[in-house]
Amino acid sequence: MGRITLEAVTKRFGDVEVIPPLNLDINDGEFVVFVGPSGCGKSTLLRLIAGLEDTSGGRILIDGKDATDTPPAKRGLAMVFQSYALYPHMSVRKNIAFPMRMAGVPQDEQDRRITSAAKALNLTDYLDRKPGQLSGGQRQRVAIGRAIVREPAAFLFDEPLSNLDAALRVGMRLEISELHNRLKTTMIYVTHDQVEAMTMADKIVVLRAGHIEQVGSPMELYRAPKNLFVAGFIGSPRMNLIDGAAAAEYGAHTIGIRPEHIAVSPDHGKWRGRVGVSEHLGSDTFFYVEDTGLADTITVRAGGNIDLHHGDTVFLTPDDAQMHRFDATGARVA
């Protein structure tokens, strides 16, 4: 079981309130991603749940029991750190065994769980090595192995992939998702990478300055961002945000249109501009269109075969059905 409830949880460092009273429900078995820019309080929130930071107010319930003052060792949660935090003086086997040793799990049961975790994580050949002799990806797998054998109520991941190179990151992302599908244990995952959030989460929690901006499934957030911040944060490349007359035309203070919802034409369309930088990804091409008079650049996603060059004049037509409208406070207009 791994149901976690935050009730008006607050955190202050001195006079600075990094987390204003915050409420959140995390259901058993859910994969929840906390996402937001640096300094938004997402890691602090995770550390509050872990018990590595003390709350300044509010309650944290784990499976209905008040765990606010329970030390981290007693919360039954496992954490995977950004730096892996492996014990450098212990072999992989001893690293993985450590939480079980602390819990007094019998030796034969320890061996059984180590063997099965090592098999699942492809670590069988490395069990007698020290962490220093492993690659980044292998170290991360050891850290995950150490978390799995505890059979925790929930897994906490603090930006676990940010020290890995891009290719490895994609691989590990899949492995963690796979792990979640297999174990069906609650996972809370902190990242600043919205691609990780979109691809892995059942539920995304977008944070800014300690506030929850929006909670929802990845596609809910993508299709109906509650405000300008979420609109700008979720989606890659970013949503185009346009103020002024063009927005007023739609009865909004700001309008937002995603790059894939704009049609490109060399000779006719609603907005006129000039092609700036183009990024050819093969399957897609991203054009950064300048001099539209709407925003600095308008990003447009087009097919891989379109033939436009730097300096060419283009015409853009947004798909009105996909237009997002925001009022002067930045809130979504229905």
Partner: peptide
């Protein structure tokens, strides 16, 4: 690194 000590705490130490 403080994280290693925190990891130990999370591991039940």
């Amino acid at each position: 690194p403080g994280e290693i000590l925190e990891a130990a705490r999370m591991d039940g130490a």
